[in-house]
């Protein structure tokens, strides 16, 4: 099967797709359709819930298997993983009408050098743990992040940072919205799409060090992350990196911005 599926073609496959009963190429095609079709996504979620009920067995979890799982956790503690966890790319865009036009936009030359500075492993751990927790807290609230992002944009307490293209300070490529509790969003992302195998990575300057705040994906639109609260980060930068992310930026920033107190 080649090419994109029509809605009707994808719909016919949803039952089999929800049961993992399609060929690999069909699964890829359906997944591509789901990315842009909330109705089909919703149906797949519901059918998977039905399948889960069919699979339900009252058997207890085998205790001896827990010992294996527990032992497996120790081999690679997530806290010292050199790669920041991937942040979920989010489909929804926030309405331009909600955008605050008055945000101060300023280029920040200093961060170009700073992002290339070697950063301590501890700083990476802190940043990693921090945004992982922040994102999960948002999940626990049963709130879709695009909705949460829209809400954050409307929050008068939010700090806002315009990220502008390096070398073109008049061109805003994304905005950051940061709430007092450290919950933060990149919104209105308009960076050029990177080729496969590459990702944008967000950095914050914290106590003189560039701390990774997470991976943004190949073409970020709306992404959740988190920062320390109260905000010690005054400046941000975005670099383009290999897909798994890096501990130390390998290229100069493509976008940058700083917090401006009004």
């Amino acid at each position: 099967m080649g090419g994109a599926l029509s809605h009707a073609e994808a719909s016919e496959l949803l039952g089999a797709y929800a049961l993992d009963a399609v060929e690999a190429d069909e699964a890829t095609a359906v997944a591509a359709h789901l990315a842009s079709c909330p109705a089909c996504r919703n149906e797949v979620d519901q059918l998977r819930a039905v399948a889960a009920v069919l699979a339900w067995e009252g058997a207890d979890a085998p205790p001896e298997l827990w010992d294996r799982i527990s032992a497996g956790l120790g081999t690679e503690p997530p806290g010292i993983s050199p790669n920041p966890p991937r942040l979920a790319p989010l489909g929804a865009r926030v309405s331009p009408a909600q955008r605050h036009r008055s945000w101060v936009r300023r280029s920040l030359g200093a961060i170009a050098a700073a992002a290339a500075v070697a950063i301590g492993v501890l700083a990476v751990q802190v940043g990693t743990l921090d945004h992982r927790v922040g994102q999960l807290s948002a999940l626990a609230a049963h709130q879709g992040v695009p909705a949460a992002a829209a809400q954050a944009m409307a929050d008068p307490r939010a700090e806002r940072v315009a990220l502008t293209a390096v070398g073109a300070p008049d061109r805003t490529v994304a905005d950051l919205v940061i709430l007092p509790d450290g919950t933060a969003f990149l919104v209105e992302g308009n960076l050029p799409a990177l080729p496969p195998g590459r990702t944008y990575q967000l950095w914050g300057m914290e106590h003189g060090q560039a701390v990774s705040l997470g991976l943004l994906g190949r073409q970020p639109r709306v992404v959740a992350f988190a920062v320390h609260s109260p905000l010690p980060i005054r400046a941000f930068a975005v670099t383009a990196e290999p897909a798994g992310g890096v501990v130390v930026a390998t290229s100069p920033p493509v976008a940058e911005g700083q917090v401006v107190r009004t």
Binding site: R48, A49, A52, W56, A88, Q135, L139, G144
Partner: peptide
């Protein structure tokens, strides 16, 4: 990768 679980899309068991 606990962040891959999205409560809005279904239960943890599902």
């Amino acid at each position: 990768r606990p962040e891959r679980y999205d409560p809005a899309r279904g239960s943890l068991r599902t």
